[in-house]
């Protein structure tokens, strides 16, 4: 079960009553179920083998510092952990998605020192000292960024899984080029796939955000 004291997305807001099944989020439900499955496995005869396998594959660890959405973090990480794994599993910033986990789909896109990168293909230790911005860092004081609002207004998300990555790449584009043409948006977003194939609406949303004054 997640540590509710950690900084995290809005769904960990203490105003949510976790004892009320109707108020429980899908993620909390799935995480709870997952923990139960692990507990069952550990109690079975398989448990010993699982434990020793983890022991033999222990990775080196390193101390790093990251600034994420303006908040400084000092972390000790496994050298093998990717940046997206640290964002999601250590910092509870689960807005950034793992899609292909091989630099092809763009669902994991975050801004590192202002530039879009695939966080699935960066080791967290390589990001030591970096300024990272994730989708959780776009809204300000509960107010969606103009780009996020344009995605809502133009039906940018369908299933929504690629949306955080699309938003981050488009945020970087709008910072460099506040009023991009549709062709410029298409070119900037080639590294973000949408398997619902909602590309036209996504491009329209970014163009509309540009018309309304950019990403910030």
């Amino acid at each position: 079960m997640r540590d509710k004291s950690k900084p995290g997305p809005s769904e960990t807001d203490s105003s949510v009553n976790y004892l009320d099944p109707k108020a429980q989020s899908r993620r909390d439900f799935l995480e709870g179920t997952g923990a139960a499955v692990v507990a069952t496995a550990a109690a079975s005869s398989l448990g010993v083998g699982v434990a020793s396998a983890q022991e033999s594959s222990r990775s080196a660890r390193s101390a790093i510092s990251l600034t994420v959405n303006g908040v400084d973090h000092s972390l000790e990480v496994d050298d093998r952990w990717t940046l997206v794994e640290v964002l999601r599993d250590q910092l509870d910033l689960t807005g950034t998605k793992i899609g292909c986990n091989r630099s092809e789909c763009g669902a994991c896109t975050v801004l590192m020192n202002g530039q879009p990168v695939y966080s699935c293909s960066q080791l967290a230790v390589w990001a030591d000292g970096a300024d990272v911005r994730t989708v959780e860092g776009l809204a300000l004081n509960g107010q969606l960024s103009p780009l996020q609002q344009a995605f809502v207004d133009n039906n940018g998300p369908q299933c929504g899984f690629c949306t955080p990555g699309q938003l981050m790449t488009a945020t970087a584009l709008l910072q460099d080029n506040p009023s991009p043409t549709a062709a410029e948006v298409q070119s900037a977003l080639v590294g973000n796939l949408c398997r619902c194939s909602n590309y036209n609406a996504i491009v329209e949303a970014v163009v509309a955000a540009g018309d309304q004054g950019g990403a910030a």
Binding site: S103, Q115, P116, G191
Partner: peptide
């Protein structure tokens, strides 16, 4: 080469 995300690193 590749995509903007790849070229940035």
């Amino acid at each position: 080469v590749g995509t903007p995300q790849i070229r940035n690193v």
